[in-house]
Amino acid sequence: MSPYVFIIIAFSLGLGTTLTFASSHWLLAWMGLEINTLAVIPLMARQHHPRAIEATTKYFLAQATAAAMILFASMSNAWMSGQWEISHISHPLASATVTMGLALKIGLAPVHFWLPEVIQGVTLNTGLVLSTWQKLAPFALILQVAHNTHPYLLTTLALFSALIGGWGGLNQTQLRKILAYSSIAHLGWMILVAQMAPQMTLLALMLYITMTSAMFLTLNKVGSTKIATLALAWSKAPALSTLACLTLLSLGGLPPLTGFMPKWLILQELVSQGFPTTAVIIALAALLSLFYYLRITYVMTMTLFPQASHILASWRTPMTKRPTLLLCTTTMAAICLLPLTPSVIALLN
């Protein structure tokens, strides 16, 4: 891709997200979401492969449907209440419609069907953008309308996402699909406390972006898109494979890694607010996700490629590129931030 085209696309992605962040009017927020969608489509379709074109088409149709729902809900709210402000979406029907539109934007269950197929059809770098940057603008809107949304709707979306995100990744062999279902499960944790503790949702979102970025960049560095090919990762980069296993366990929420922090704080908030049953259900759903993280970790550390030998074989391609600064930073942040939990709690309070 030409560097000029890449600069234009990156500028458009930043402009769309910033416009949505800064807007208090529904039309401006909708415009920012559309700029984001149109900017990422050239990145998805640049492979000139039928699977990439199929993923781009599915992404465009899903995002267009979500944008139409958001625009319809905002126009209905303006018609019934005379308000175009994002924080003044007061009618129950408009609030539920815009929440479902934003859920479709980010891939919450039960409107998640496009997300695994789309991420499977694009490159790892583009999948990283879809899993991280493209979540920021819709989440800004979700946090602004959460106080006007029925709590049962948010809880239902959250529990469905956590359960389907864990259940759907169990029988997958494609790493991009597994990371897509991991995204769905983590989004459920974030949405669950969006109404009662929005600052905790932001914390979970930032840590999820950090951990997922580290995982996508690691897979891109070792050149693996299937679980079976991860048996080669140890011979290519032993240190990077070890850190990748720790990052996977952090995504699963195991202590003493960073991913334990948001899950622990969210469960504590749910119990303190009087929702112990919801906390138990979503904690059990996290065990489903932990299973396929452990499965990937087992393949990376305790299995070898068939006919493995101690000599440099033709299939054992050495790594020619060293890990980048972004990969090193995100990996360390995904593993080592748990000791900062008391400071984070003090900031949240």
Rank of each mutant, 00 (worst) to 15 (best):
S2H: 08
A10E: 05
G14W: 07
L27C: 14
W30T: 09
M31P: 02
L33F: 00
A39D: 01
V40E: 02
P50V: 09
T56M: 12
K58N: 14
F72R: 03
A73G: 04
N77T: 04
E85K: 11
A96S: 14
G107H: 03
L108D: 03
V111H: 01
W114T: 02
L115W: 03
V118G: 02
Q120Y: 10
Q120V: 11
T126Y: 01
S131L: 01
K135R: 05
A140T: 13
A140P: 13
L141M: 11
V145F: 09
V145E: 08
N148Y: 08
H150Y: 15
A162V: 10
I164L: 07
G165D: 05
G168S: 14
Q174M: 14
R176H: 13
K177S: 09
L179S: 03
S182R: 06
V193F: 00
Q195H: 05
M196G: 01
L202H: 01
T210E: 06
M211Q: 12
M215K: 11
T218E: 07
T218Y: 08
T225N: 14
I227A: 03
T229K: 07
A244E: 01
L246N: 10
I266S: 07
L267N: 00
V271I: 12
S272P: 06
T277W: 14
I281E: 03
A283G: 10
A285Q: 01
Y292I: 08
L294V: 10
V299W: 07
M300A: 08
F305L: 03
I311F: 15
T317I: 14
T331R: 01
P339Y: 00
T341D: 02
